[in-house]
Amino acid sequence: MPRRLVSTGSPFEKTAGYSRAVVDGDFAFVAGTTGYDYTAMTMPADVTSQSRNCFKTIEAALQEAGFAMADIVRATYYLIDVRDADAHFAVCGEFLGEIRPAATLLVVAALLKPEMKVEIEVTAKRRSA
């Protein structure tokens, strides 16, 4: 099966040279995803809304690639403020509470833009039918 690229249609993907997701065989690798609301092209101010938006974008990319959220096996979270961890983890529980992928949280000095509070990347493996 050839490698397949999944795009959100953002011109930034071409400019920066990346895809929202790359499918290779039974795996989907979803790029770091920030909390933009792509329908309104806005960034909410709070980490809870940003985390929810991250997961919604990730879910849409996985669906387009032929995967489901239940296929997620690995998640990496990047926060710029450790005080946001509890609010972020509450959202993780909403989306991944039953899935429970292997996960890592990193607190970083900054993300690409100052309004970004969280970035999430995931790896999914297609489940056997």
Score class of each variant (00 low, 15 high):
residue 4 R to D: 10
residue 7 S to E: 11
residue 8 T to H: 15
residue 10 S to Y: 11
residue 10 S to W: 12
residue 11 P to W: 09
residue 13 E to L: 06
residue 16 A to Y: 13
residue 17 G to M: 08
residue 24 D to W: 03
residue 25 G to I: 03
residue 28 A to I: 03
residue 29 F to N: 00
residue 30 V to S: 01
residue 31 A to Q: 02
residue 32 G to C: 09
residue 35 G to F: 09
residue 38 Y to G: 13
residue 41 M to N: 04
residue 41 M to A: 01
residue 42 T to D: 02
residue 42 T to S: 03
residue 42 T to Y: 00
residue 46 D to I: 08
residue 48 T to W: 10
residue 49 S to P: 01
residue 49 S to N: 03
residue 51 S to C: 08
residue 51 S to P: 05
residue 54 C to S: 12
residue 58 I to N: 00
residue 59 E to H: 13
residue 62 L to D: 09
residue 65 A to C: 06
residue 66 G to F: 07
residue 66 G to Q: 09
residue 73 V to T: 04
residue 77 Y to I: 07
residue 78 Y to L: 07
residue 78 Y to Q: 00
residue 80 I to T: 08
residue 82 V to W: 12
residue 85 A to W: 11
residue 86 D to I: 10
residue 86 D to K: 11
residue 89 F to W: 15
residue 91 V to D: 02
residue 93 G to R: 10
residue 93 G to A: 08
residue 93 G to T: 06
residue 94 E to M: 14
residue 99 I to D: 05
residue 100 R to F: 14
residue 103 A to V: 03
residue 104 T to Q: 02
residue 105 L to V: 00
residue 107 V to L: 04
residue 109 A to Y: 15
residue 110 A to P: 11
residue 113 K to I: 06
residue 113 K to C: 10
residue 116 M to A: 13
residue 118 V to M: 04
residue 120 I to D: 01
residue 123 T to A: 12
residue 126 R to Y: 11
